[in-house]
Deep mutational scan, measured.
Amino acid sequence: NQASVVANQLIPISTALTLVMMRSEVVTPVGIPAEDIPRLVSMTVNRAVPLGTTLMPDMVKGYA
């Protein structure tokens, strides 16, 4: 089972991601792979991401 990136807090729309905002967790459905966390830092989300939500590729500008 692959770990995915999960929001560690509410991430408001257009917020630049930082390490403290994300954690890795094995979830269903599978989202962005946890090993991509370093790549996600400073990318922005294009929607509000509630606490505990799995980050999907279409939620992060420039990721997909």
Rank of each mutant, 00 (worst) to 15 (best):
N1Y: 14
N1A: 15
N1I: 15
N1K: 06
Q2R: 05
S4M: 03
S4P: 03
V5R: 02
V5G: 01
V5S: 01
V6R: 02
V6H: 02
V6L: 07
A7S: 09
A7M: 04
A7L: 03
N8H: 06
N8Q: 09
N8M: 06
Q9I: 11
Q9H: 11
Q9D: 08
Q9S: 08
Q9P: 01
L10N: 15
L10S: 12
L10T: 10
L10A: 13
I11V: 06
I11A: 02
P12E: 10
P12A: 09
P12Y: 05
P12W: 04
I13T: 15
S14P: 02
S14Y: 15
S14A: 13
S14L: 12
S14R: 11
S14M: 14
T15L: 05
T15H: 07
A16T: 08
A16S: 11
L17E: 03
L17N: 02
L17S: 00
L17A: 00
T18V: 06
T18L: 08
T18I: 04
T18W: 03
L19Q: 10
L19K: 14
L19A: 10
V20K: 13
V20S: 14
V20E: 13
M21Q: 04
M21L: 05
M21H: 10
M22V: 07
R23L: 05
R23D: 05
R23C: 05
R23Q: 05
R23E: 04
S24C: 09
S24P: 13
S24F: 05
S24E: 10
S24I: 08
S24D: 09
E25L: 11
E25T: 09
E25C: 07
E25M: 09
E25R: 06
E25H: 07
E25W: 05
V26T: 10
V26G: 05
V26H: 12
V26Q: 12
V27K: 13
V27H: 03
V27G: 03
T28C: 15
T28Y: 08
T28K: 06
P29I: 06
V30D: 12
V30M: 12
I32Q: 00
I32G: 02
I32R: 00
I32S: 01
P33N: 08
P33W: 10
P33H: 07
P33C: 10
P33R: 07
A34H: 07
E35A: 11
D36K: 10
D36M: 13
D36Y: 10
I37F: 02
I37Y: 02
I37C: 05
I37R: 07
P38Q: 09
P38I: 13
P38L: 09
P38S: 12
P38E: 10
P38K: 10
R39F: 12
R39A: 08
R39P: 01
R39N: 08
L40Y: 02
L40E: 00
L40Q: 00
L40C: 03
V41M: 06
V41A: 05
S42N: 11
S42T: 13
S42K: 12
S42H: 13
M43C: 10
T44I: 12
T44G: 04
T44M: 12
V45E: 03
V45L: 09
V45C: 06
V45M: 06
V45F: 00
N46L: 12
N46T: 13
R47P: 02
R47Q: 14
R47H: 12
R47C: 07
A48H: 15
A48P: 14
V49W: 03
V49N: 01
V49T: 04
V49Y: 02
V49I: 13
P50N: 11
P50A: 12
P50E: 14
L51Y: 13
L51P: 10
L51W: 08
G52P: 00
G52N: 13
G52A: 06
G52C: 04
G52S: 05
T53A: 13
T53G: 11
T53C: 07
T54L: 04
T54I: 09
T54Y: 03
T54C: 05
T54M: 04
L55V: 10
L55P: 00
L55Q: 01
L55H: 01
L55K: 01
L55A: 02
M56C: 10
P57Y: 06
P57E: 07
P57V: 06
D58V: 08
D58H: 09
D58E: 12
M59A: 11
M59V: 08
V60G: 02
V60F: 05
V60A: 02
V60Q: 00
K61A: 13
K61I: 14
G62A: 11
G62V: 04
G62I: 04
Y63R: 04
Y63L: 05
A64L: 12
A64Y: 05
